[in-house]
Amino acid sequence: MISSDVIRGYNDTFLLSLLSEQDSYGYALSKEIKERTGGQYVIKETTMYSAFSRLKKNKLIEAYAGNITQGKKRTYYRITEDGRKYLEHKQQEWTLTKEVIDKLVERGENK
């Protein structure tokens, strides 16, 4: 499992990215993150809700009460227009970051 220090700055982007596909709620999002990374990254509950709180404050996502499923009333989140713009910006930033880090941190073979 990956160290959460390294990945901390990207939690908001993970959630935005998943929400850009469809509206969702807490457990579904954390499950999706776990499954897509094959269990290599697990987002903690408090980390996820810190991110929700931040994203809401910056108006990048909105919360709304979902229907009751399995006896539980869940809070759903949807991405806003600002959220989509921010996500796009973050995606470009990541492409660049990846190139830079690849060049500097890459191991052996290409040298």
Binding site: Y25, G26, Y27, S30, K31, E45, Y49, K72, K73, R74, T75
Partner: peptide, 17 residues
């Protein structure tokens, strides 16, 4: 209150899963 309910629901879902 809502936060607590949401987190609890997530954890219960995760547990059941």
């Amino acid at each position: 209150y809502q936060l607590k309910q949401d987190m609890l629901a997530n954890m219960e879902d995760k547990y059941e899963h």
